[in-house]
Every structure is written in C-alpha cells, then in structure tokens.
Amino acid sequence: MIRPDAELLLDISDLHASVEDQPILKGVNLQVRAGEIHAVMGRNGSGKSTLSKVLAGHPAYRVTGGSVRYRGDDLLTLEPEQRARLGVFLGFQYPVEIPGVSNLEFLRVSTNARRETQGQEELDTFDFEDHVRERLKVVQMDPAFLDRSVNQGFSGGEKKRNEILQMALLEPVVSILDETDSGLDIDALRIVASGVNQLSSPETASILITHYQRLLDEITPDYVHVMAAGRILRTGGRELALELEQIGYDWVDEQLAAEGVV
C-alpha cells in the first residue's frame, strides 16, 4: 500500500559495506514507508543478502559509508539486539541450529525483550504458552516444535515457519525476509506467504529478498528493486518482477557495462 504521507520507516542512503575488506555494497539507496512491501531481486552475489545482514547488524559486515535511519534515528550505531527490540526483524535464509536452547524459552526471552522496549508487561511461562499457541496458527505449526532445541533437526520448511513464528511474536515494524522462499515446496511457500500477509499492516513494512517471481505471486509487492554489483540498478512496480521472469537478468550486464561498472 503506497501512501506518500506515510511514516518514513527506513531511509537507506548511499550505503557502502564490506566483508573481510571486500566491498559488497556500493551505494544502496532505498526508502521504505509504512504500509509498503518491497521486493529486492537480483542474481547471486548482487549484494541482496549483505544488505539484509548489514541492516540487522551482523558483526562480520563493516559499514564503510552512507547512512541508515530507522524512524529518523541512526540505525547503524545500534547493537543487533537493540535493533531487534526496536522492531527491525531479519528472517534468515539459513536459520542456525542452537543445540540445548529450548525453542520455547528462546521465543519467550526474545518476545519479552521486544515487549519490554514497547512498554508492555513481561509474559511469564504460562501466559507465554497461551500467547505462542495463538501465534502458531499463523504458520500452522505443530506445538511439538516448541519443545525442541532452536531449529535443531527442523526441516528447511520448518525452519522457515519458525522464522515467521518469531516475526509473529516480535511484531516488528520493518521485516526483512532474506530468501524466505528458498528451498520451500509450494505448500510450505503458501503457508509462509500467508503468514507474512496476515502480519502485514498499514503501520509496518516488509522487504522481501528473493530470486524468484513465485513468492511475489503470493505476496504482492508495491515496489520491485533489482540489485546488481552492490546497488539498486532499477526500481519499478510489481510488473517489473513479471518482466524479469520473462527477460531474465542478462540486460543487467549490458547496463553495468554501459555504465563502465564491469
């Protein structure tokens, strides 16, 4: 939903970032307002995942230039946990397994950290169980997953559902979903997409990072961006995604060559 007067939630300006001294992001500009759904597409190595990691504050990525403002404040000086508590959520492409840490306890601690920042009261074990069972419905997840260790022994689809469950619990303002569709069969994809749709609201925004059109069949984006060589090369509406499905990304090389980038 595009409303030019909606709150500017995320303002990324000329963002540069490196990993192990290798520049990956080379001037990303992106503005995300409340109510909007953005799709960021592009080939492997274009910098899509790096953008998501930088926004969440992964310590391996170093910001070398530019700025990111979240609801008007500098996002880049905050620790990852502070960003999360303030409502920035990253859905991981490959959620890690954490043996020994109970999923339920993990979800409770993180939910309470977010609630505390929002001035809501802490949920004790019993209240939280009720709360989480309600949210499980969003992703049609079996409560048995709550008793396991975080992501341990989960299938690819179960891990992704666990990500969306976390999104449902944390009620983020800006959600960045990094290739949430990868490795999912069509049924799992629909469940995940329906979860994201249920959680969308005029007050929040999402950035979907994806290779493929098929996620965008389920979640309709307001904007589609094509990333290449560490920046956004082209921006359009949802029709751009359909066009990419037709023509692929070969034009990207031509355009980069024309600009003298490659």
């Binding site: 969440a56 946990e81 959620p95 890690v96 043996p99 306890e105 993180s110 977010r114 260790s149 975080v150």
Partner: peptide, 25 residues
C-alpha cells in the same frame, strides 16, 4: 558467531545469548 548473531537479532543481548547457549550445553 552466527549462533550468537541469531540470538542477538531476536533481541537477546550478547552476554545473555552466550549464557543461554552455555546453560543449554
């Protein structure tokens, strides 16, 4: 680092993330 980052990105502080993993262990 990735396990710690995962927990941190869910609002759990660095030290608490370590201690959660240790007590899980």
């Amino acid at each position: 680092e990735d396990q710690l980052f995962y927990l941190q990105s869910r609002g759990i502080g660095f030290e608490e993330a370590v201690s959660m993993m240790v007590s899980g262990f």
